[in-house]
Design a protein around this nucleic acid. Structure first.
Length: 422
RNA sequence: GGAUGGGUGGCGGAGUUGGUCUAACGCACUUGUCUUGAAAACAAGAGUGCCGCAAGGCACCGUGAGUUCGAAUCUCACCCCAUCCGCCA
């Protein structure tokens, strides 16, 4: 959510930002509605002031015809207030609905474009492997080594269901231990295991609701399953005032993730690239309200993830997402995509974004600066490692002519010191 | 799921026969005095949001409705927390 004052003072910027994100919204309409809101608000407040003034003049023990008359007059004013309040309530409802739809303004460095096809490559790392044989897909490789079971997966869990098995399970656990070791060594990150079954507020606060109702699983208790640890982690400090000297707060979070993948029924239907249930380690950061600080940390979070891919020796590139591929709250986003031989292209493994105060304004997360003034903190997040997706790229890039899979060196110590899966 | 007790400011904690209560008191905080400096002590100040150029006004004591001229205080619903019982990894 943006500040209505900011919207009023920068309506052209906000409107242009929405256009860049390919979001339909009429800012002029919102401002007209806001004028109406302010007008009626003033009327209500003036009437309430009158009632307060008169009421405080009426004392308990005073008994007179004058008192009776005043009470009668106030009864009438109260009727009027009730009417205006009802009107105000309706305006505010409409106003809030619109406010939740106003997207955050993308950074100037964000390229124009409508879909991920128009994202721009900003960095390439590693050598794309050349095979002198026809490389197998991760599905073929995993089945070959009995690392996963998709038939029984869908029998038991339905569409996109899967079991990880044998070296598949061990490789996933190895990756978990690897990423945990790296982040626990890293200064400043607080390790967190966060809930996935959450109440609605944090989804609205982070910007997933109300727009993406279809992408979330909802329970009969009106809670939702989160698709990322970001939602719970951001909810953690909801409606709290933080101490500036503790900023930035950095969290290394683990959670199960659930995504309905509504609207991508035809995409990536085989294997473990796109699944309904997985686990993910996520970096979440809260920092002071400074664009420079947000940018600095954004680069830092991105670099952290790149370092993991480099250690895993996976060729990847970084793209800056175009306006149309940004979420409602995101100011800027990098996707990191690792090379996927079976698709002959890079496929997303990480997503790194910053939001300024878009999320924290909705969540009410503030800090006091040295002058005692309150500000909304800035928020950022990036994947640390998502499993089992990353295994697609690992097994495919590390496959050998004989069908065996070389184990990345940094993972061997978690796999009994073995060099190959065969 | 059952029973009981609770939800007040950055924190702790008063206040419920409805009437200047944004709310005692303590801690933390800011400024000043003292001190070489700090601590301590003393003095003063300070809640948050919104409207307004300002003066000032309005709202906020878990959330939402309601009663009343007037609600932190009364009524109803809901949410959350604690403890005990039940169940359970």
């Amino acid at each position: 959510m943006l500040d209505i004052k900011f919207i009023r003072e920068n309506k052209n910027i906000v409107q242009a930002g929405a256009k860049k994100k390919h979001v339909e919204i009429d800012i002029e309409k919102l401002i007209t509605l806001d004028d109406e809101r302010l007008k009626v608000l003033k009327e209500v407040e003036d009437l309430r002031a009158e009632v307060n003034r008169v009421s405080s003049g009426i004392s308990r023990d005073q008994e007179s015809s004058h008192k009776v008359q005043l009470i009668e007059e106030m009864r009438i004013v109260k009727e009027e207030i009730k009417e205006k309040e009802e009107k105000l309530k309706q305006i505010i409802e409409e106003w809030q609905k619109l406010m939740l739809q106003v997207p955050n303004v993308p950074d100037i460095s964000v390229p124009d474009g409508e879909t991920d096809a128009e994202n721009q490559e900003v960095k390439v790392w590693g050598e794309i492997p050349k095979f002198d044989f026809t490389p197998k897909s991760h599905v073929e490789l995993m089945l070959l080594h009995d690392m996963a079971d998709f038939e029984r997966g869908s029998k038991v869990a339905g569409f996109r269901g899967y079991f990880m098995k044998n070296d598949g399970a061990r490789l996933e656990w190895a990756l978990m231990r690897f990423v945990e070791d790296r982040f626990i060594d890293r200064e400043g990150f607080t390790p967190m295991i966060v809930p996935s079954l959450l109440r609605r507020e944090s989804f609205v606060g982070t910007g997933y609701l109300p727009q993406s109702e279809d992408d979330l699983y909802k329970t009969q208790d009106d809670t939702y399953l989160a698709g990322t640890a970001e939602v719970a982690m951001m909810g953690y400090y909801m409606n709290e005032v933080l101490d500036k000297k503790n900023l930035p707060l950095k969290f290394f979070c683990f959670s199960p993730c659930f995504r309905r993948e509504a609207g991508s029924h035809g995409k990536d239907t085989k294997g473990i690239f796109r699944i309904h249930e997985f686990v993910k380690y996520e970096q979440v950061v809260l920092c002071e309200a400074s664009h420079e600080e947000s940018r600095r940390l954004h680069e830092e979070l991105t670099a952290n993830s790149e370092a993991l891919l480099q250690e895993l020796q996976l060729p990847y590139h970084v793209v800056v997402n175009c306006g149309g591929d940004l979420g409602l709250g995101q100011v800027k986003k990098y996707d990191i995509e690792a090379w996927m031989p079976s698709d002959n292209k890079y496929r997303e493994t990480h997503s790194s974004s910053y939001f300024h105060d878009f999320q924290t304004r909705r969540l009410g997360i503030r800090y006091k600066d040295e002058n005692g003034k309150l500000h909304f903190v800035h928020s950022l997040n990036n994947t640390a490692l998502a499993m089992p997706r990353i295994m697609c790229q690992i097994v495919e890039n590390y496959q050998q002519a004989d069908g065996s899979i070389k184990i990345p060196e940094v993972l061997r110590k978690y796999m009994g010191g073995r060099e190959f899966i065969k």
